[in-house]
Nucleic acid binder design. Sequence first.
DNA 1: CCAAAAGTGTTTGCTCTACACCCATGG
DNA 2: CCATGGGTGTAGAGCAAACACTTTTGG
Lengths: 207, 207
Amino acid sequence: MLALRESALHVLLATLAAGPFTGWRALPGGRVQAGETLDDAAARELTAHSGLANLHLEQLYTFGSPERDPRGHVVSVAYLGLTPPRAATDPGPAGKYTALEWHPVAALPRLAYDHGAVVGIAAARLQAKLRYTNLAHALLDDTFTLADLQSVYETVLGRTLDRRNFRKKILALGWLRPLDRKRRGPHRPASLYAFRDRSPREVDVLR
Amino acid sequence: MLALRESALHVLLATLAAGPFTGWRALPGGRVQAGETLDDAAARELTAHSGLANLHLEQLYTFGSPERDPRGHVVSVAYLGLTPPRAATDPGPAGKYTALEWHPVAALPRLAYDHGAVVGIAAARLQAKLRYTNLAHALLDDTFTLADLQSVYETVLGRTLDRRNFRKKILALGWLRPLDRKRRGPHRPASLYAFRDRSPREVDVLR
DNA sequence: CCAAAAGTGTTTGCTCTACACCCATGG
DNA sequence: CCATGGGTGTAGAGCAAACACTTTTGG
């Protein structure tokens, strides 16, 4: 589960209460139940642990090296989840974990199993898909300013973008619907926007 | 396993000798063995059935719908394999299959399980990666002409490309090493090329 | 000498990039 | 009125697309 908090990429980590890595941090997860789709299992596990629901979840990669779990040969199907800011608060302890907390990806503790590598692959996938899809919607609340949206791109891509060029390009894509509302604040109010459509769209680029 | 034969995308299909889909066509595969990586298992199965070895193999997607196999809940990790023309001959019957044959993807028979969908996802992945990686090397023999290479792109992308622009762009990438040999034929001989490096490279494009 | 594929440059339009100033609001 | 972030246009460069003729060989 990835989210942006204070302009930094964060990942939701669990503290393990049992097993060979007791006390270590790891990605939350669980087993597929009989008669259940992999997608369903990922959504069920996520909701059970964190209360988060209805978020973007997509299959990431399947890990099956025999030595990844000291207890035996386990195959794990990793999922990439994305959370908008309003849902990205620490859920606290739940079920089999003694804690569930957001950690900045740039400064992670050592993770149990091969989960450190999993986070790296997830971040790379997010960065790649942001370049050619409308996936940014999954990291934003329903309404947002263009500055918010630009911040998503800048944080994930790891560099700054020219504000005028960004606005031109992103508006030309036609993905956004301008709202009649403004976000008030200490300075000039910013126009609010929403995505017209959250279903996947591909494009030729935001470099 | 995908390959290009006579300028058409083909897939290697097995004819099942047992099970609920006896006589149907399906993608060749098998079970992971104890102590074995998923990648290793894919390579082992491929070699065992077809004698093909040392080819491009990458994880494609993991399928786990409970209803995909009538015998029970099976999770399959699908791999995308690519074969150069010289290896893409029908391997004939082997092991648990009564036949192993290349079929054009454009006119497939009905496949067992959900394998029809798997082939569709594989073709889409191939098309996407051809656009931004040097993956074409896996579909070509060691030496080839620029016309051969252009044909790979045209076949997989499904449209024709301007010969002059194609040559300019592909040579500008620096991926190719010109050889001192020519391919003789009924017409003007064509210069032969090889890939300098078959390790994965990404680029901004061949549209 | 004919058929067929190989080989090669230039022009045009478009897209991306770089860049600076005024505006609206809260405090 | 001041500080701060919001909002906007244009000019130049680089890239992609369109396009036709000559060359080389085998038969």
